[in-house]
Write a protein that binds this DNA or RNA. Sequence first.
DNA 1: GCGGTTATGTCAGCCGCTGACATCACACTA
DNA 2: TAGTGTGATGTCAGCGGCTGACATAACCGC
Lengths: 197, 197
Amino acid sequence: MSGSDINYDEAMVRWEPDSRGRLEQAALALFGELGFEETTVAAIAQRAGVTERTFFRHFADKREVLFGGGTALQDAIVGGVREASPDLPPLAAVAEGFAAAAELLQGRRQFALARSEIIAANPGLQERELIKLASIAAAVGETLRARGVDEPDASLAAQLGVAAFHSAFGQWVATADAPALSELISEAFGRVAALTS
Amino acid sequence: MSGSDINYDEAMVRWEPDSRGRLEQAALALFGELGFEETTVAAIAQRAGVTERTFFRHFADKREVLFGGGTALQDAIVGGVREASPDLPPLAAVAEGFAAAAELLQGRRQFALARSEIIAANPGLQERELIKLASIAAAVGETLRARGVDEPDASLAAQLGVAAFHSAFGQWVATADAPALSELISEAFGRVAALTS
DNA sequence: GCGGTTATGTCAGCCGCTGACATCACACTA
DNA sequence: TAGTGTGATGTCAGCGGCTGACATAACCGC
């Protein structure tokens, strides 16, 4: 139908589309320029061309704008653990889960680096990062329990996995010519095993 | 000397002593009665007989009133690790550190329980708890490095220790007739070892 | 006594965050 | 074509956490 070629002149639409995306962009830019603390939500909103109130409709709080895609990683890890071969011992299943997640991050080292620098510069953001890791550990523990692992072994294995992952991830973003993340992860699990022998 | 029996009438002193202690008490009580979110700093200050401003002179933020004694625990752990026999492998040294800390908590299970219930009921407080654990892990890692343990093993061993401690602590507060904390801790370290075999 | 120190009070104000209500393009239906 | 939602946004008032700046007065050492 010819109805689809209506001229959507700017004057016709009430608001620019994708205000959420614009808010994310504006926030990232301002955090980089001024720092997290020094950036007010009002300033983010203004740069995005919306109201402060609209910011809080899209993000639960100021920090959340940096942690929007956090669930995808957790889902990947949990999925990997769930689908690990049922006869694997707990920690091996956990290792498989994190290996699965590694592929999801592999191409995005540059982005991960920028983000982790902003986070490293602000204690409040580190808290949020830790919450995310704790949430991953809880979800992995839950998944292990569903595989028949009893407490407290399920939670402990999950925490060991998170520790290994965190260590590997830290190395990965810190070194420019780092090996593949999955390789670093499997190495970290190896080191955990070696530490307890 | 007779100078010590001066009558310190209330009217003589400008302020009641130990305002920090009164603030802690008032906060604990109000958090228990109303919950953390519903308790305002103004209310805490009023019950303690001081100004809101004074609260923030003693505690960096509202949550900190629950985490005041956190450094003592960390110091005990770090001290225990530092003074462990130098020829012990990393994880064994860490285990000794946490065993040292156990004694510090042993008599305070009731208090620890009340505190952990308040924390469990509020996400913001859980963040702070995680920060505390992360800070302990960082300090333990540092201590291991001073003992000659290289990265990333130092950080990994520290994280493993924190995971074991956290697991043991959780069991300890959760069960009324729990064994001694030190016993649970050594058991948790044993489970960590078993998981990696 | 005297001056510095220390703990507190007082006040103004920013900023994160929320609830309540108004607005108006758009989509859907009769 | 008119009427009727619906959903994303704006507007406004306000609370509560938190801070800086300055004043006050007991205490401590000299």
